[in-house]
């Protein structure tokens, strides 16, 4: 399946930065993910982990640096059928009713040609994706009648229907109870066995922790840890909003509106 040119990393970001309205969100990120890896992207709210995934999928263009998927620069990448994406959502419902079958079927579009009806293999893929998340027999149900956890599973099935080689999941565990987490872990475990590369953004890993090969922890738009999954205690420590040894905030970052003169005096004092 893989040709000679594709032995390199599946996802690669080189010196990637993103700023939104002048505010830096990602700062000089270097990240490469190899085929078959199960990578967890962890970090506190606002650490830039979702933005990093959005940069990898082209939803948020890099303000500097390069992003590559399967060795091709994102701007030239056309092989979207190889990518699966589970966006961060609380609900899969829109303004018009839609059945489970239809929502999952829309995940097959990346492999379907324009103006052609769904082929037999398309229908099989949709059926298998629905079965993989344990919703067989619910194909005709309206999406709005499902519980939050079931809707989340529909969104995962939608990504699976395209039979991706690389799957991005943005916080799939948000608002999902333990039983649903375990069933999700089962689905992702099977994908991992098939050799699918998985990039998972998560706040907490829960039942998915045993699957993780590599953990990347972010804070303030930078990667602060890249390697094995730290123990719960270390993880908790590194996710904390502030650093303990930073007793005094940096002068250049924090405006002292209340006491600008005192700050200047203390700076002058340092120099004298």
């Amino acid at each position: 399946m893989l040709t000679g040119t594709e032995t390199g990393p599946v996802v690669e970001i080189r010196d990637g930065s993103v700023s939104i309205d002048g505010r830096p969100i990602l700062r000089q990120i270097d990240l490469s993910v190899n085929a078959g890896q199960f990578l967890a992207l962890l970090g506190a709210n606002g650490s830039g982990k979702s933005t990093l995934v959005r940069a990898c999928t082209g939803l948020r263009p890099l303000s500097s640096g390069t992003a590559l998927l399967f060795g091709t620069a994102l701007s030239n990448f056309r092989d979207w059928a190889r990518i699966g994406f589970v966006p961060q959502r609380t609900s899969a419902a829109g303004g018009v009713p839609a059945s489970v079958q239809e929502v999952v079927g829309s995940g097959r579009l990346s492999r379907r040609r324009l103006l052609r009806p769904a082929s037999r293999s398309d229908r099989t893929a949709v059926r298998e994706a629905i079965a993989a998340v344990g919703l067989s027999g619910r194909e005709g149900d309206g999406i709005a009648t499902l519980s939050g956890g079931e809707q989340q599973r529909v969104l995962i099935a939608r990504a699976l229907a395209g039979e991706p080689e690389l799957l991005f999941l943005d916080e799939p565990m948000a608002g999902v109870d333990l039983a649903a987490q375990q069933s999700l872990a089962g689905v992702l475990g099977e994908l991992k066995l098939k050799g699918t590369t998985v990039v998972l953004v998560a706040h907490e890993l829960g039942a998915l922790a045993p699957l993780v090969d590599r953990a990347v922890i972010m804070r303030d738009g930078r990667v602060i840890h890249d390697g094995d999954l730290p123990s719960d205690h270390e993880l908790h420590d590194s996710l904390r909003e502030s650093h303990h040894h930073l007793e005094r905030p940096h002068d250049d970052h924090v405006p002292h509106v209340g006491s600008p003169l005192e700050l200047r005096r203390s700076v002058r004092g340092d120099h004298e």
């Binding site: 966006p87 829309s106 579009l109 990346s110």
Partner: peptide
Amino acid sequence: PQLYAVALDAEFASVAGL
């Protein structure tokens, strides 16, 4: 199918190459 996918979830549709 395309118009439906885009109307349902523009971000997903974009990553699906639409």
